[in-house]
Amino acid sequence: MGYPIILQIERIYYPLLAVFGVFVNVLAIVILLRGKCGLSKCITVYLVGMAAADLLVIIAEPILYRTVHFYFPNSLMFITPVCSLVYFLVFTTTVVSVWLTVSFTFDRFVTICCEELKTKYCTQRTAAGVIGTVSVLGCSVSVPWYFRHEPEYVIDNVPWNCITKSSFFASPAWAGFVIAYVILTPCVPFFLILLLNLLTVRRILAASRVRKALRDRKKTQNDRDPEIENRRKSIVLLFSISGSFILLWMMQVIFYIYRRIAQVYSYPVTDPLYFTDTTANMLQLLSSCTNSCIYTVTQSKFREEVKNALKSPFKLLVKLRMS
């Protein structure tokens, strides 16, 4: 039996994304935890937290939900309580990942734009507290998703498959919950990141003009400015992470808004809306793999650590052969 082209793409894309996502996020976590990338402890804590959240996103959706659905349709993963748990994990990990990106963006905003608050807020302890709080809240607000489904059928007292309850579409409580969820993830984070970046850019441009004017008066404009260099590195990292998030989530946000306005909730595989929905989801999940690539491109020390990590297995093999 042949599959529509979009399903064929999905069957290839999600397993490849899963392998790549697990590899790059585990690699990022290991390298960042070694603490040799020249980043502050505060930034390192956020980046490790974000990489861990992205890893969980990859495990929850591309692996447990998508790949299992395509290649293991009759597995124990389709027992109703299990697949309900998978749905819960998909939404929970997405919420946590998105809001950790917002938290990191806000931390960098405080560092650059709020000098008085910087010393108290931008610390390793605060970063760990924020990550813990976001994780707990993300799990809490996603609990209702576990109760969205009911069994499709029961065999030997074992409930199988997850189908959406009829009350999900008829209940005002469910409707309110879904609207609140969509507003909180991804609409509010999307616009918060955009706003914080705009405010940060404005502050940077103003501060750069002042420093340049002062240095021009001292006729040292050809000298390197360490403050500007450090700020530039921080900004490149911030804008790369938040910029990729905005670009990869943009289609998802627009499609969310369209579906709510048009009140479109389901469509066949052959419908162009299915293709749009699938493409938006692919791009959104790709955002869980991009941060590690961004670190490699923008951070020279991280890049060196990646090279060393990739060379280590070959060096070990050489030593074993020589011994």
Rank of each mutant, 00 (worst) to 15 (best):
Q124I: 04
R217S: 14
K120C: 05
C37A: 11
L7D: 08
R259Y: 00
T94D: 08
H69L: 10
I112Y: 04
V22T: 03
I183H: 03
T220A: 04
E115S: 09
L192D: 02
V236C: 13
E10Q: 15
N291T: 04
S287K: 02
L89N: 01
S142V: 01
V98S: 14
G35R: 11
F255R: 01
E116K: 12
S140Y: 12
Y258R: 02
Y274D: 07
T290M: 07
N157W: 13
I261E: 00
V82A: 11
R217D: 14
N230K: 13
E116V: 04
T126F: 08
T296I: 06
L7M: 04
P159C: 08
N230V: 07
N157K: 14
I29L: 08
R303P: 00
L285I: 05
I5M: 13
R231K: 14
P226A: 05
D216Y: 15
V178N: 13
A262E: 05
S234E: 14
I241D: 01
D54A: 13
T80S: 10
L237P: 06
L286M: 11
Q252P: 00
V158K: 05
F104D: 01
Y14G: 05
K307L: 13
L196Y: 11
P272S: 00
R215I: 06
K307C: 13
S234H: 12
S323I: 08
I179R: 12
V95Y: 08
C162T: 03
F72D: 13
I12T: 15
T93H: 05
L17I: 00
A173G: 03
T80Q: 10
D277C: 12
I9H: 09
Y181R: 06
V102I: 10
I163M: 08
F70T: 09
S171P: 02
F20S: 09
T92K: 06
C37S: 11
F72C: 11
